[in-house]
Simulated scan of single mutants.
Amino acid sequence: MRVTQGCFSFLPDLTDQQIHAQVQYCIDQGWAVNIEFAEDPHPRNTYWEMWGMPMFDIKDAAAVMMELAECRKVYGDRCYIRLSGFDASHGWESVRISFIVNRPQPEPAFVLDRQEIGGRGLRYTTRVQAP
Rank of each mutant, 00 (worst) to 15 (best):
residue 76 G to K: 06
residue 53 M to T: 12
residue 72 R to C: 06
residue 117 I to H: 00
residue 8 F to V: 01
residue 22 Q to T: 01
residue 24 Q to L: 06
residue 42 H to C: 07
residue 52 G to Q: 05
residue 10 F to A: 05
residue 59 K to C: 05
residue 109 A to M: 12
residue 109 A to K: 15
residue 16 D to S: 07
residue 83 L to P: 08
residue 74 V to Q: 15
residue 126 T to K: 10
residue 7 C to E: 12
residue 61 A to T: 09
residue 60 D to T: 09
residue 1 M to K: 14
residue 31 W to N: 07
residue 87 D to H: 04
residue 53 M to E: 12
residue 85 G to Q: 02
residue 63 A to D: 13
residue 86 F to H: 06
residue 53 M to V: 11
residue 86 F to D: 05
residue 71 C to L: 07
residue 87 D to P: 03
residue 129 Q to T: 06
residue 40 D to Q: 08
residue 96 R to I: 01
residue 71 C to G: 05
residue 125 T to V: 03
residue 46 T to Y: 09
residue 111 V to L: 12
residue 30 G to M: 06
residue 51 W to L: 02
residue 118 G to V: 10
residue 49 E to T: 10
residue 23 V to T: 00
residue 113 D to H: 13
residue 52 G to D: 06
residue 116 E to H: 12
residue 123 R to T: 02
residue 126 T to W: 15
residue 92 W to Y: 14
residue 99 F to Y: 12
residue 102 N to P: 02
residue 63 A to L: 13
residue 111 V to R: 13
residue 35 I to Y: 00
residue 102 N to S: 12
residue 131 P to Q: 04
residue 59 K to R: 15
residue 61 A to D: 02
residue 34 N to W: 12
residue 29 Q to L: 03
residue 51 W to S: 01
residue 24 Q to D: 03
residue 32 A to K: 00
residue 9 S to H: 15
residue 30 G to K: 02
residue 59 K to E: 13
residue 83 L to D: 01
residue 11 L to P: 00
residue 27 I to E: 00
residue 84 S to C: 10
residue 110 F to W: 15
residue 58 I to E: 13
residue 36 E to F: 10
residue 93 E to T: 10
residue 54 P to H: 07
residue 49 E to Q: 12
residue 80 Y to M: 02
residue 75 Y to I: 00
residue 72 R to P: 02
residue 112 L to P: 02
residue 54 P to V: 06
residue 92 W to A: 06
residue 34 N to G: 06
residue 6 G to I: 00
residue 1 M to C: 04
residue 85 G to Y: 01
residue 34 N to Y: 14
residue 22 Q to W: 07
residue 120 R to C: 04
residue 101 V to Y: 00
residue 46 T to K: 14
residue 84 S to D: 03
residue 3 V to W: 08
residue 41 P to D: 00
residue 55 M to K: 09
residue 55 M to V: 01
residue 119 G to W: 03
residue 26 C to K: 11
residue 46 T to Q: 10
residue 21 A to M: 07
residue 30 G to W: 01
residue 73 K to V: 05
residue 95 V to W: 05
residue 94 S to D: 13
residue 99 F to W: 13
residue 45 N to E: 05
residue 51 W to A: 05
residue 28 D to L: 08
residue 31 W to G: 01
residue 103 R to G: 02
residue 17 Q to E: 15
residue 48 W to D: 07
residue 103 R to P: 04
residue 40 D to V: 09
residue 128 V to H: 05
residue 5 Q to W: 14
residue 47 Y to N: 13
residue 43 P to V: 07
residue 79 C to I: 03
residue 46 T to V: 09
residue 93 E to W: 11
